[in-house]
Write a protein that binds this DNA or RNA. Structure first.
Lengths: 208, 208
DNA sequence: CGTTGTTAATTGAACGTTCAATAAAAAGAT
DNA sequence: ATCTTTTTATTGAACGTTCAATTAACAACG
């Protein structure tokens, strides 16, 4: 029998190397030679474990979305109260979590977003993740405002979060997570205050 | 002498074909063969007029940024009052102008944004445009609030605008301009109301 | 008014490069 | 000894660039 337990290690190695390569050179120049060299293995391994380059890219995107979901999930699990502001705050905090904000993750996320416009496989992943985020926001907003306005609030906050990501990915020094959180929370509090805001919206200026 | 005045025509043809190709197949698959065929010319023309594919891409991006600047400029020129809300509103309206919202323009804009992370020539163009937008917003906000808050407001609104673009580009049917305008204006009015809002912020719900 | 020379515009095939994929050989662990 | 893992070399396709040849518009001249 061959090496045991090597597969998950190699897969993680290659996925991390893919993010690093995209961060370093962009998706267009993230060749399998570059990725393999960065992972310290040979090119053939990619086809062996992922069936090809596309498989590796899809797995990498899936990993990023999983990490994002976990970051949000953890924050929500640790919540003291289940007020709308707290729940939505967990979404914001999760989106600007350490693991998500790292240069490689942010650049890779944006690269896949762009790429998903013309690759159905990636588009599907992007779509389910996006719908989950939207539905989640929409649900919590609708607890304190009419359905129609909740939808707008969800769309607005989602756009704000993505916009901060977009601009953070372009910044050479990476995304300023603290600053981004502050702006996102300001947007959230405004949206909540707009429709019979809660006291927490007024007093909860500090949230870190 | 050969045809006179052909050069600007061909350049525009090729630039439009480039946007169409990117809209259709993405930047990665926007080959010179595809672009040339779409423009109804041969591949050699690209090198003849733009020095190569990179030159064409740079010219295309420059065109998009110019169009965006013109759209904003026109709106501002037609303003009745020069209140901060009106001026910033012109920026929003300009950003969601017809010519900017078209599928090809939106997808190309996003593709170049991603690409500019690793191509210095594109990064420079993106940078000057971004600074101009930010400085403009910052100036108008600082007329009704302290400098520090004006900076945050400008960053927030800029992120919101870009986020709406980002999500609009991914939507199959293209960006819903009216909906995007509404959300951006809601964000603007909240930002203005936050710091000694003007009466216009309260009454100016209709802006189309 | 017609002819001719000049010159830019345009074509399309050839070239060298680069890429992902593949297959067969080699290495390594049980 | 056997099966998985890994490497290496090779393949074929696709890319952007280049350039010699061709086309067509214009001006000058007869």
């Amino acid at each position: 029998m061959p090496k045991v337990g090597i597969e998950p290690i190699r897969r993680r190695q290659l996925i991390n190397a893919t993010m690093g390569a995209i961060d370093e050179a962009g998706l267009a120049d993230a060749t399998i030679v570059r990725i393999a060299r960065r992972a310290g293995v040979s090119t053939g391994i990619i086809s062996h474990y992922f069936g090809g380059k596309d498989g590796l890219l899809e797995a990498t995107m899936r990993q990023i979305l999983t990490d994002l979901g976990n970051a949000v999930g953890e924050r929500r699990r640790r919540l003291a109260d289940d007020s709308p502001r707290a729940c939505i705050g967990a979404v914001i905090e999760g989106n600007f979590d350490r693991t998500q904000v790292t240069g490689p993750a942010a650049k890779t996320w944006l690269a896949f977003w762009t790429s998903s416009m013309h690759k159905p496989a990636l588009a599907r992943l992007q779509n389910v993740n996006d719908r989950r985020l939207y539905a989640n926001l929409c649900f919590h907003f609708s607890r304190v405002m009419p359905r129609a306005q909740a939808r707008d609030a969800a769309r607005g906050l989602a756009a704000m979060i993505d916009g901060l990501w977009l601009r953070g990915a372009l910044t050479p020094d990476g995304l300023d997570a603290e600053s981004a959180r502050r702006l996102a929370f300001a947007c959230l509090d405004q949206l909540l205050a707009q429709h019979g805001g809660t006291p927490a919206a007024a007093t909860g200026e500090t949230h870190g």
